[in-house]
Simulated assay, not measured.
Amino acid sequence: MKYPFLISIPHGGIRIPSEVAGRFVLPNQDLLWYCDPATRHLFAFGQSASAVIDTEISRMVIDLNRPPLPLPPKDPDGIIKTRTIDGRPVYRNGQLPDLKLIHQLMMKWYFPYHQRIDELIDSHDISLAFDCHSMLPYGSPEQNDAGKKRPLICLGNYGDETGQAKPGSLTTCPPEWILGLADAFRKEFSGAGDVAINVPFSGGFISNAHYWRKGIPWIQIEINRILYEDNSCHIQRSVVREERIPGLRTKIWQILTRFWDDLPKEGQEVYFS
C-alpha cells in the first residue's frame, strides 16, 4: 500500500554546475552547510509514498522554494542568493550571474521542478503534499528569529500558531490537519516546545503556489538539524551523523502515516476553500 502523499525535497541537493563553478566566494564546505544536508535521505519515502520529487541542484545556485521574481539584487535571499542568512556575500565581486545565465538556470532547474510537481499531482493518487526541509537550531542573524532557539519540529500551513488562517489569507491545509499532525509528532518529540506550528517557518513558495494551482493540501515540515548533526551551528565543525538518518526517517514516516490513518475519512477529501 502506498500512501496518497507527495513528498517534495527542494533543498537537499549539493550540485554546483559548471556554469557557476568558480564564481562563489564561499568555499565548498560552506556552500554545503547552507543547504539542507541529508534531507534527500531523511525524507526518502519513495517506496511508500505515491510520489517523491527532489533535486540534485544546490539551493545556493538556484532556490526552488522562492518565487521567480524579484531577481537580484532586490532580494538577497531570493531565487538567486547574493547574501547568506548570516550576512556573508555569496559571489565574488563581478561574478553574480547575469540575466542570461539566470534564465538558463531557471529553464534547466527551476521551472522543470515546479512543472513536475503539477504532473505528479495530475498522474498520481495525491491527497496531501509535504514540502520537506531541515533548519538550524538557532535563528541566523538575518532571519526573523535571529538568535532564538528553534523547536525540534516546525510544521507550516501559512496560518498562525494554531493553524488558523491569518486575516486576509488562506491556509494550505485545514487547521485540524496540522493540529493533528503536530499531536502525532509530539507523541515522539514530547519536550515542551519541541513541536511548533508556523513558528519560525509557516511555509514557502512551493506549498503556497501549488496549493493555489491544484487545491491539494500542503504542509511544510522543518526538522531541526540537531537531530542528526553534531555542531550544527558551526560551519567548519558541522558533521552529519549518517547513522542517525535511518532511525529518524522511520520515525518520521510512522508519524505521517499514523496521522493519516487517524484522520476521519471525511477529512481526507480534497480540500479547497
Rank of each mutant, 00 (worst) to 15 (best):
I57Y: 04
R59I: 01
D63K: 04
R66S: 08
P67K: 08
P67N: 11
P67F: 08
L69V: 07
P70C: 07
P70T: 09
L71Q: 08
P72T: 04
K74C: 02
D77L: 10
D77C: 01
D77H: 13
I79L: 05
I79H: 03
I79A: 02
I79Y: 03
I79N: 10
T82K: 05
R83S: 02
T84E: 08
T84M: 02
T84A: 03
T84F: 02
T84N: 05
I85T: 13
D86N: 07
G87Y: 06
R88Y: 01
R88C: 03
P89R: 10
V90Y: 08
Y91C: 00
R92Y: 04
R92H: 06
G94N: 12
G94V: 05
Q95P: 01
Q95K: 13
P97Q: 06
P97C: 12
P97S: 06
K100Q: 10
L101H: 10
L101R: 11
L101W: 09
I102M: 13
I102K: 03
H103N: 14
H103G: 06
Q104M: 06
L105D: 12
L105N: 12
M106A: 07
M107I: 03
M107H: 12
K108M: 11
W109T: 04
P112A: 00
Y113M: 05
Q115Y: 10
R116D: 11
R116M: 05
I117A: 10
I117C: 06
I117S: 07
D118N: 11
D118K: 09
E119S: 06
E119I: 03
L120S: 08
I121F: 07
I121C: 09
D122F: 01
D122W: 03
H124L: 00
H124D: 04
D125I: 00
I126V: 05
I126D: 04
I126A: 01
L128Q: 03
A129Y: 00
A129P: 02
F130C: 00
D131V: 00
D131M: 00
H133D: 03
S134Q: 02
L136R: 13
L136N: 10
P141S: 15
P141V: 03
P141C: 05
P141R: 14
Q143N: 12
N144Q: 13
N144G: 14
N144S: 15
D145N: 15
D145G: 13
A146G: 13
G147L: 12
G147N: 13
K148H: 15
K149P: 14
K149C: 14
K149T: 14
K149R: 15
R150D: 14
P151R: 15
L152F: 15
I153S: 15
I153P: 15
N157M: 09
N157E: 12
N157Y: 05
N157Q: 14
N157H: 10
Y158Q: 14
G159E: 07
D160P: 08
E161D: 15
E161F: 00
Q164L: 14
